[in-house]
Amino acid sequence: MPIDFSGYWKMQSNENFEDYMKALDVNIAVRKLASFLRPDKEIIQNGNHMVIKTLSSLRNYVMEFDVGREFQEDLSGVDDRKCMTTVNWEGNKLSCVQKGEKPGRGWTQWVEGDELHLV
């Protein structure tokens, strides 16, 4: 099994985040607000079961899933959408694909040294 992502991760930077949200057609109010936040991540991993908490001063978001198993993700508190999401291992990286009204959504996450990277 790949590496353990468990831990508390503090955001250091969010380069090009507003442009990314704009490309995904996230509304301008949400984009402006989100670009100022510096959310932390708390990750609890038990084998292939993951709980990823995104924590900020404005709102928190919890994503709980089993790697490799599709689930319905409710992002109504984030960017007001619902999608079918699958997260898979790609080596030591987690790769997320979100299927919904907008194609090409998702993310990749990995650890290098003591840093968590999210693209």
Score class of each variant (00 low, 15 high):
G100P: 07
Q109Y: 03
Q109L: 10
E101W: 11
E101C: 07
N92D: 14
T108G: 05
T86V: 15
P103H: 08
W107N: 14
G106K: 05
V111Y: 12
K102A: 11
M84D: 09
R81T: 03
E112S: 13
V78T: 14
K99A: 11
G100K: 01
D80I: 01
G91Q: 10
L94H: 03
T85Q: 01
V111G: 09
D80E: 06
G104N: 04
N88A: 08
K102G: 04
V97P: 02
K93P: 09
E101Q: 13
L94K: 01
P103K: 11
W107D: 13
P103N: 07
K99E: 00
N88C: 13
V78E: 12
G104K: 05
N92S: 10
R81N: 02
T85I: 02
W107H: 13
W89P: 02
C96K: 01
G100Q: 03
G77K: 15
N92T: 00
L94F: 02
R105A: 13
E90M: 07
E90I: 09
T108Q: 15
L94V: 01
T86Y: 08
W110G: 07
T85H: 04
G77N: 15
V97G: 04
K102H: 12
K99R: 11
C83V: 05
G91R: 12
S76W: 00
M84T: 14
R105E: 06
V78M: 11
K93C: 11
Q98G: 02
D80R: 01
V111S: 08
V97N: 10
G77C: 10
T85L: 03
S95C: 15
Q98A: 13
L94G: 02
E90Q: 07
T86P: 05
N88E: 12
E90D: 15
P103Y: 03
N92E: 08
G91F: 08
T85E: 00
C96S: 05
L94D: 01
V97D: 07
G100M: 06
V111H: 10
N88L: 12
M84P: 02
W110V: 00
N88G: 06
C83P: 00
G77L: 12
W110R: 01
G100W: 02
G104P: 03
W89G: 02
M84S: 14
C96F: 11
V87G: 10
W107Y: 09
N92K: 03
L94Y: 01
G77E: 14
P103M: 02
K82W: 00
D79P: 01
N92A: 00
N92C: 00
Q98K: 02
T108K: 15
G106Y: 07
T85M: 03
W110M: 00
T108S: 06
V87D: 06
Q109F: 02
W110D: 02
C96E: 15
K99I: 04
S95F: 06
Q98W: 01
Q98F: 01
N92W: 00
M84L: 12
V97E: 12
W107P: 05
Q109E: 06
G91L: 06
R81Y: 00
L94A: 02
L94S: 04
P103A: 12
V78Y: 12
T108W: 09
V87N: 09
W107Q: 12
E112R: 09
V78S: 13
R105C: 10
D79C: 08
W110Q: 04
